[in-house]
């Protein structure tokens, strides 16, 4: 039973790959509008959380996003404006 539950946990994929992201800029700062993953464009229905992280000496603005079918974490390197896809998991659990 525990192994089965760990399988549910493991569905979350950690990618940390460079991502192509369409972003908006305004009074609230920057926010992702859509991103491309595995050849498909995913529209961001809502940004559910924002926070900051440090990784390898860099500071990232992080966004948890809901596309309707998937929940993903997008990270923006503020210095060189590079986006990365941190994790993604299907919305059905």
């Amino acid at each position: 039973m525990t192994f089965g539950l760990y399988l549910v946990l493991m569905k979350m994929m950690r990618t940390n790959e460079v991502a192509v992201v369409e972003a908006g800029f305004g009074k609230k700062g920057v926010w992702p509008l859509s991103f491309v993953w595995e050849g498909r464009r995913h529209e961001v229905k809502r940004v559910t959380m924002r926070w900051e992280e440090r990784n390898g000496g860099k500071k990232y603005a992080c966004f948890a996003v809901d596309t309707g079918g998937m929940v993903a974490e997008l990270m923006l390197d503020r210095e060189n404006l590079e986006w990365r896809l941190g994790t993604c998991e299907p919305s059905c659990i």
Binding site: L9, E52, C62
Partner: peptide
């Protein structure tokens, strides 16, 4: 323990902690 928690609730969902996330929220 994880073992005990699955015994108490078989549908529990386990999520790895992201302390940097929580720390960042605390700063806000």
């Amino acid at each position: 323990t994880v073992w005990e928690s699955t015994r108490l609730c078989s549908s529990i969902l386990l999520v790895p902690a992201n302390m940097e996330k929580y720390f960042s929220l605390t700063q806000r």
